[in-house]
Amino acid sequence: MKPFTVNISETVLTDLKNRIQNTRWPGEAEGSDWHFGTSEKYLKEITDYWINGYDWKKHQDQLNQYPQYTTDIDGIQIHFQYIKGKGSNSIPLLLTHGWPDTFYRFHKIIPLLTEGEQTFDLIIPSIPGFGFSDKIAISSEAVADVWIKLMTETLGYNKFCAAGGDVGMGVTKALASKYPDIMERVHFTDIGYPMGQEDPNTMTEEEKLFAQFVQRWWYSEGAYAMVHSTKPQSLAYALNDSPVGLAAWIISFGNAGAPPELIETAFGGRDELLTNIMIYWVTQTIGTSMRMYKADAIAQWGGSQPLEKTDVPAGIVVLPREAQFPREWAERFVNVVSFKKLDNGGHFAALEIPEVFSDELRSFFYSL
């Protein structure tokens, strides 16, 4: 373990500003608003704030507020935050982010989960290919193998808990399936989607309705995942070269889960949205982050055996701006002991509703 500090040079920041100022705007169809993708009107507004109002140095200091480290696991440099709880018997909790976010997804809940009596030792790594970890793309199952070594060999925990959503869901589910003797409890904000491989004769009516919703969603909003899973390299050239293009792609995903007026709210705020984009930009990891979808697609469709259902106790929350999957769908994959529907929030619950999400994690992990 080596201490790590985020320290981005002024040269990188000056280059970013110049690139934004020299953007060749494509124009947009009259009245298209958000129906063709990210609104150019909105994008011009937020990029103007990016170079004239947003303060990266302030948020860089915020990133450095908590202890960070790097370590080498199987030849891959892993970046992670490690914050010990102040309670007398803290639970070790591994939090895994998704796409298009980073380890920054959890920064608002760190003080909420490490102070008081019922606290956690928080381990918040950057997935390989994301942020300040090595620029290499591996499958969710392979990430789970790396996380086990991080937790047991690097940090010395015999058992621990884990939570994750989006890509982090796949990693957490793999941890529970492959290492049930080490994982004590797991928590999810989603649990995967029907992909057409399911036997309809085994599905309940609620699951069939969920599958129909997911199919419609993929056709209307799933372009990003299809590109990532098939041609991520083709897109990487553009997004790694243009900060405005990078922002447009990430914001477009946020729009898929929230109406335009809630896009910044969904990411926790305008500054939080830009800080998340900045982490991709300064580390040049948008290409490898997208390539992880390809690695997972190869694993899924390349003949790998699917993970078995795990007996590790699992907590599930369904957020109102996420796909509304039924409990029986979750029970296909994990041992559901808690299933709740929340009244507010979306894909980035830890950013958008940190107090509610922290209470949910504490309630679940300390209830068993």
Rank of each mutant, 00 (worst) to 15 (best):
E10F: 11
V12W: 06
V12S: 11
D15R: 12
R19I: 12
D33P: 01
K41M: 09
L43N: 01
T47F: 06
T47N: 04
N52K: 15
T71D: 01
D72N: 15
I73V: 15
Y82L: 04
I83W: 00
S88H: 13
N89K: 15
I91E: 01
D101F: 10
T114N: 07
E117R: 13
F120S: 02
L122M: 09
I124L: 01
D134E: 14
I136T: 13
A144E: 12
W147Q: 06
M151D: 08
E153M: 08
Y157T: 07
F160R: 05
C161S: 14
A162S: 13
A163F: 06
G164D: 05
T172M: 03
A174I: 05
A176Y: 07
I182T: 06
D190R: 14
G192N: 06
M203D: 01
E206Q: 10
A211W: 12
V214F: 09
Q215V: 15
R216N: 15
W217H: 12
Y219D: 15
Y219E: 12
E221N: 04
G222K: 05
A225S: 07
V227K: 06
T230V: 07
T230G: 03
Q233W: 00
S234W: 02
L235F: 03
L239Y: 06
P243S: 05
G245I: 12
A247C: 05
W249Q: 02
W249P: 05
G254D: 00
N255C: 00
A256P: 00
A256S: 06
E264T: 15
E264C: 10
F267N: 04
D271G: 01
M278P: 01
I286N: 02
M292S: 11
Y293T: 11
K294G: 08
A295W: 01
A297V: 11
Q300D: 10
G303R: 14
Q305C: 11
Q305L: 13
T310Y: 09
V312D: 07
E322K: 09
A323G: 07
Q324Y: 09
E328L: 07
A330F: 07
V334W: 02
S338D: 06
E352Q: 10
I353L: 08
V356Y: 02
L361D: 00
F365S: 03
Y366W: 09
S367G: 05
